[in-house]
């Protein structure tokens, strides 16, 4: 297919995706609120930029990232690749969860890097930075969310390899979130909860889904229909913890700095 035809196909897809949203927004704007926004032209231009940007973004992903990512997920989980790391006398039956170490490393790195590029997370980080008057750094938030996703996806891969039921992991995660909630600074809590849902959009979901399906197809005894799911749940649970942890660490550091400053002042006075 020619580039242009493919571009139009993807743009059409994006338009059908955006159309209901635009209809709702402008429908309510004109029929219920009955006012024309002062900068209507600029806003419409903004929508056009979003459409164009999202289409290009998806098309680019379709061409480079997704095929590569899928092939890599397939190759890394391939038994012959795993076997290559084993001793000569060992057989498939001797494969242990640790032999999948490249899968965990890949999961960690791809989870981190796709989250850094996730447009929805960039949007929320800009907003949070704006609303908090700069107290929450754009990069601080993005990196802590990305770390959460990275840990979540590698743990999720480990779960697929060993075959544990998913709900014990998720429930344990909930318990940790609840405990952290009672200690974390109040300002961060809603944002931390939000960052769970934000992380998994355009870039992360297709790659992570490919990884989960690849793993569950090749690990002996796993059923892709049942075990292939769940990675996205891990990817949306762990950022909640990592963002709260980030806020707790920042608060602890600020406290420590303040204490040091007071001590310094005392010494100076003495």
């Amino acid at each position: 297919m020619s580039i242009l035809a493919e571009f139009f196909a993807v743009t059409l897809e994006t338009v059908t995706d955006v159309l209901p949203i635009a209809a709702i927004i402008f429908g309510f704007q004109f029929a219920v609120l009955r006012q024309v926004p002062a900068n209507l032209g600029e806003i419409l231009a903004g929508f056009a930029w979003v459409l164009l940007g999202l289409s290009l973004f998806l098309l680019g992903l379709k061409w480079c990232l997704f095929p590569l990512g899928r092939v890599m997920a397939g190759q890394l989980t391939d038994p012959s690749f795993i076997m290559a790391g084993l001793e000569a006398h060992e057989t498939i039956a001797d494969i242990q969860w640790i032999d999948y170490y490249w899968v965990y490393i890949f999961a960690f790195l791809i989870g981190f890097s796709t989250t850094i590029a996730e447009p929805a997370l960039i949007a929320v980080a800009i907003k949070a930075n704006d609303v908090s008057g700069g107290a929450i750094g754009i990069w601080g938030l993005r990196i802590s969310v990305a770390l959460g996703v990275a840990v979540g996806i590698s743990l999720g891969c480990y779960r697929i390899v060993v075959g544990d039921p998913i709900h014990w992991y998720i429930i344990t995660g909930y318990v940790i979130v609840v405990i952290q909630t009672s200690f974390a600074p109040k300002l961060i809590i809603p944002l931390a909860y939000d960052s769970g849902g934000v992380t998994t959009s355009t870039v992360t979901v297709p790659l992570v889904a490919a990884l989960g399906l690849g793993l569950s197809e090749t690990v002996p005894g796993r059923n892709p229909l049942i075990d292939g799911f769940g990675l996205i749940a891990f990817a949306s649970l762990f950022p909640i913890m990592s963002v709260m942890a980030y806020a707790q660490l920042s608060a602890a550091k600020a406290k420590l700095d303040h204490k040091r400053y007071l001590q310094q002042k005392e010494q100076d006075a003495a």
Partner: peptide
């Protein structure tokens, strides 16, 4: 383009 449109629209 997406980020640009986001902030503008």
């Amino acid at each position: 383009f997406f980020i640009h449109g986001l902030e503008q629209g």
